[in-house]
Amino acid sequence: MKKITCIAAFVLIAAFVTATSAYAQISGKQVIEKVYENPTGEDTQGELTMTLTNKQGEQRIRNLTQYIKNYGDVEKKIMFFMAPADVRGTAFMNWSYTDGRDDDQWIYLPALKRIKRISSDGKGDYFMGSDFTYDDLGDRHPDEDTHELLREETIDGYSCYVVGSTPKDEDYMYSKTITWVIKDSFIGLKREFYDDRGKLLKVLNIIKFNQIEGFWTILETKMSNVQKDHSTHMELSNIQINLGIPDRKFTERSMMLGE
């Protein structure tokens, strides 16, 4: 009996030491920074299909083509809306800066035939009626939140760090997020979003990811709004990395021509 007690004590101490050493190795902030700094290639292009499903099971599908290029201090992204027909020809361009200043955003509406600069204050708006806000689709800088490593957990067979993040801006649309990050690849596998009352609002699950040209790339995700019983399935296809997207892709000409 004494032997068993000693073994249990040893196991507990070993577990504590292991856990302490693991926690000493990496902090919540470091985990999120590693996710943020995961190499993505200098440029990426691909087709995006979003399937929106409401609580009655009705589905709406949106297709678009997107191009992303990283210039170091600025990441430029342009999206061309392909379907449904009433949004075809619409182009949306976003320039996101690493120094934390507000994004620059423009939209081209084919009916108006001109490019309009839009306020980046609408980051909390839902993108094309999906469950993703504009901010959900961007790379949120780690310095915008405080992070805490909550625990380690295995989900879907992946050993993960679980990190809680609280925004420094009290007016931010989420009161906190909890992210499951795969230990060996630093890919965010799951994220929970909590509303301003602290209640669970949305859950993002990464369904499929793969290495393309040596870069970890997310291919399929699902965002579920648990309060509205609405979900968006997003699938990326025909992804090409480091093809050398020309700078002229992110200009007035490209937006107006729709390619």
Partner: peptide, 9 residues
Amino acid sequence: VGLPLGPLV
């Protein structure tokens, strides 16, 4: 001219 002024354009 169109210019961003914080949350305004």
